[in-house]
Design a protein around this nucleic acid. Structure first.
Lengths: 321, 321
DNA sequence: CATACATGTGTAATCGATTAACTACGGCCT
DNA sequence: AGGCCGTAGTTAATCGATTACACATGTATG
């Protein structure tokens, strides 16, 4: 910056003014400064700027698992929305681990992100409290924690789940295997509660950890126990369950019915295509980014609840069509 | 930091020494400082630290498309490797657009990342030159650019592609539709050249853009032209092609054979499972991160070429088993 | 013609860390 | 006792920007 000032025959203050579009500098000075910048290939140091202004124009996003397409889509949507407001997003991948989540959150805070979006790995509120105590704007995404005091953006699957339950019961299933998420996550618990609630005593629940491998294992147990229908509570466990079904040579929907929470582009391509509960991922990501930006600007955004919807495709059997 | 110093009755210099594990401070002083830090909940400002030390302990990673599981896996691997060396990764999503790629690269440079990993959207070397001119360590990943002067990490699919060609020809296909990547990307061009080369005159090429929609369209054209086998040059275009095949009610492999470059966890679950050329994504990501770290440490890492392998699964027909 | 006032630019303090250079203190040797 | 040295700690410069305040110049006003 000093070089630029020297080259243009002005002070660094003037260079800064030109850079930030202040009213002051004469068109002629501005021209000289811009020429010098161009010539020297000068680019301002964002670290120094942020240090001075205490604003990084950056949002932190800590998600549970980058390899889960559900979160990848959310990340993408957050980024789009943030960019359109002049913000940049730094993504941290917690890998469904609470410690790694905490590590990332702290790293991001150390780098002074202007705000934080968090998909909490567990419903333990301590990390959330830590962030709030630091006075950093925070929005929870997809999942919440016990006694959350910050805005939350999530999808409501209750309606879709009860509709799904109705279908399953209507189709005559009496042993319905539920591959649930971890009970210490809000989505894991809530989805399972709603579904088992509307299935009466027909549900049998096995908990997984939102990963493929746990889906296979849970499916194996449930099939062994005589389940005639499986419902996986996220797409990765659904993938695992599907693998197990195939490995056993069972036919969907003849031998066993299957439904999955979360849609995937390839689900319609299976034979039969998989019935799912689709979450509005893009809308969730955008809404979360908007809420966070509002919070940063001193407003008090409300919680957002978007609705997930049941998409019937064939993997439950004839009855559904 | 000043507060901590005050609380501990020392100067900020001493606090800094404690923080950075310098030899000087007495165990007793160190104790007092740590207590003060704990009590005040102090966390050092990474911006200020980086400004002073000119090191951010951060790598930039600009990938072509976050929604492409191939890149998501790479990102994940890069991150793992980087973290194990005490570095953090900031991901930029270029969305297969050269402008967005340039924007992200500049943003990352402005934030003074210690090094940059780039999956170039096109083979135009100007952006790479710009980075090199700035003296920032740079490693290219998956794709290269014309006349690249920096280390490159990529997968070599030649062997697998010629093996695939042999299978297709052996199975008696005479009209083989190739859904190619954009000709202005190194992977797009090279893969296509190798495959069409070993197919002699049997190949018919349509270029896509590495996205699902273009895969469907290309497949449609090729099927209309009488292709009895399709090879998609990346997984998203493969997904699109598969959709088109299904939409037309064609049976794989009876009516048409299909092979895809890039493996996906769900490919084995299709009926028949899809034959693919699998790239060692995790190894690519790790190798790239290692090369970059070496470069940052003043070494001169060699290019890395890992080999992709053909995984026969059934979508080419009986002949392959 | 002196006074006020707007306008463009420069000076220097500041953000929060690191670190070279310096100081103060105590112990050891002759 | 006096000189020397090693050690623990302080002072202050520095990284590269932003910005309040001071200053100089030019124009309008009474």
């Amino acid at each position: 910056m000093k070089d630029v000032a020297l080259h243009a025959g002005v002070s660094t203050a003037t260079v800064s003014r030109v850079l930030n579009g202040h009213a002051a500098p004469t068109p002629e000075t501005r021209e000289r400064v811009l020429a010098a910048i161009e010539k020297l290939g000068y680019r301002p140091n964002a670290l120094a700027r942020s240090l001075r202004t205490t604003s990084t124009q950056t949002l932190g996003l800590v998600i549970s698992d980058l390899l889960n397409p559900f979160f990848a889509e959310i990340a993408r949507a957050v980024e789009d929305e943030a960019r359109s407001h002049g913000y940049c997003v730094v993504i941290g991948n917690a890998d469904e681990s609470a410690e790694q989540e905490a590590t990332y959150v702290r790293t991001l805070l150390d780098r002074r992100v202007d705000g934080l979006l968090l998909c909490p790995a567990t419903d333990d509120p301590s990390l959330v409290r830590e962030v709030s105590a630091g006075g950093v704007p925070l929005v929870l995404l997809d999942r919440t924690v016990r006694g959350a005091t910050c805005p939350v953006v999530r999808a409501d699957g209750s309606e879709a789940l009860t509709a799904l339950a109705r279908r399953l019961v209507g189709a005559g299933h009496t042993r319905i295997g539920v591959i649930a998420g971890p009970p210490n996550t809000s989505t894991g618990r809530e989805r399972t509660d709603v579904l088992t609630g509307s299935l009466g005593g027909l549900a049998q629940v096995v908990h997984g950890d939102f990963r493929q491998e746990s889906g296979s294992q849970a499916a194996a147990r449930l099939i062994d126990d005589g389940a005639t229908a499986l419902v996986a509570m996220d797409n990765l466990m659904g993938l695992g369950a599907l693998g197990e079904v195939r490995a056993r040579g069972l036919q969907i929907p003849h031998d066993i019915a299957l439904a999955v929470f979360d849609d995937q582009p390839w689900f319609p391509l299976l034979d039969p295509p998989i019935t799912v509960i689709a979450q509005p991922t893009v809308e969730m990501g955008r809404a979360a980014a908007r809420s966070l930006l509002a919070l940063i600007n001193g407003q008090q955004p409300d919680d957002v609840r978007l609705t997930a919807r049941l998409v019937l495709r064939g993997s439950l059997g004839e009855a559904e069509l």
